[in-house]
Simulated scan of single mutants.
Amino acid sequence: MSTNEESYYDRVIGPCLRALPPRDANGLSFTDKWWIKHFEYLKENGYLMRPRYRPGWKPSYDTKDISEEIEAEDGQDMLHPDIMDALRMSDSLVVALKRVKVSTDEARIATFFSNDTNNLNPRNHCVRLLEVLPVPDEDDRKFLVMTWLRPIMSPRFRTIGEGIQFFREMIEGLHYMHENNVAHRDCSMNNMAMDANSMYDRPYHPIKPKKRYDWSGRALHHSRTRRPPRYYLIDFGQSRIYDSSQSRRAEYALKSGGYTPPEGLEGTPCDPFATDVFLLGNLIRTSFLDVLSGFEFLRPLVMDMIAEDPSKRPPMDEVSSRFSQIVDRLSWYKLRSRAIKNSEFILSKPFRATYHIFWTISMLVLLKPAIPCPKPLH
């Protein structure tokens, strides 16, 4: 091994390997074994975990060959120690089982937005709970059961109208939270997700979403325009619910999605609703305006949302109203135009543009609206 290779190993590879939790001969960590211990309990309640998390599991691959592990379905570990995927046995829906502490506001807020009053409200875009289960022998924990969701940016946005639908649902959803005296406080892209099941004819694998759930091949999907997904605000671990009869207390802003609001940098507590406005505006700026062409019409609104002085940021009712007025002025041609990455290879643009024309014609023939509209929840 050369000096440079030794240095790279010492600086990068070594620390990563040492950071991994201890594993047994089958490659199972303590957390893996905790979930395996609860396999029968979850099965009795109608949820079936993948083969890797079933009692007596033995790997189908050589545990000493990392390339074999990566390519094997039962080599796919969980994404987070507190989140497990499973199949709902009654209808084969892929769900997420999230282990949370009862003492936090997360279970309380998630349950509130999933109650009979809020559940079917079309303006409510907080993730819905399918069920809440106690954790055996752990009175301070619960399982929150939800539909399995995937990152917002995968698959990619094809049109301006598709992006508009995402913005609309997140603006509407955060506005609804504020109307109910709840501040998210961490509403970055990391804490937004989409239910993309409508886009797939066959379920995708939760850990390797480019593959089918049964590992039988590539998971093919339709566009957001043809099969609209539904977007959700998730993860209420930092959220706060306030008493409407009292003044809302100021909070210290948190770093969210890699960005700290100005008030957080100054260490000054402020209205958490104003911080939410900043985080949402900053998300639109960094994930869309600065990387995709075609969304510049939103920049004036977004710049107001990310004003350094929290008192100068518009409240969510104003954000919602201004956004609607902006969208109402957009032509159908603008809405159906391509959302183009700024980094797109220049020689590929004519070919992509030509393909997009034919694809757009097909969407018009199918009577698909320029701004996708998911089916109402039942």
Rank of each mutant, 00 (worst) to 15 (best):
L254M: 09
R52K: 11
L144F: 13
D77W: 03
E68Q: 13
V291R: 06
N115K: 02
F358P: 06
E71I: 08
T111R: 15
G294L: 07
I207L: 15
I83T: 12
N191R: 10
V127K: 04
P51M: 09
I13N: 13
N4H: 12
N115H: 03
F288T: 02
L20F: 12
R329C: 14
T63D: 03
H80F: 11
V145A: 06
N119P: 06
L335V: 01
E68N: 13
R336W: 00
W34M: 04
N115Q: 04
T63K: 05
N4S: 14
L280D: 01
S239N: 07
M316V: 00
R18W: 10
W34N: 06
T268L: 04
E308M: 10
G56P: 04
M192N: 04
L301R: 01
D65G: 04
D271L: 01
S7W: 10
H38A: 04
V302F: 00
L280M: 15
G14P: 01
T3I: 11
L133P: 07
T111C: 13
D24C: 05
I340V: 09
D328G: 14
I326S: 07
K43N: 09
K368Y: 01
S114M: 02
M316I: 02
L367P: 02
E68F: 12
F112P: 00
F288Q: 03
R141Q: 15
K312A: 15
S331M: 02
T360L: 05
S245V: 11
P272W: 06
K98G: 00
K142A: 15
Y200C: 01
D235E: 12
T111E: 13
H125Q: 05
M303Q: 15
R202Y: 05
D91T: 11
C126E: 01
I346N: 06
V277A: 03
V100H: 02
A193W: 01
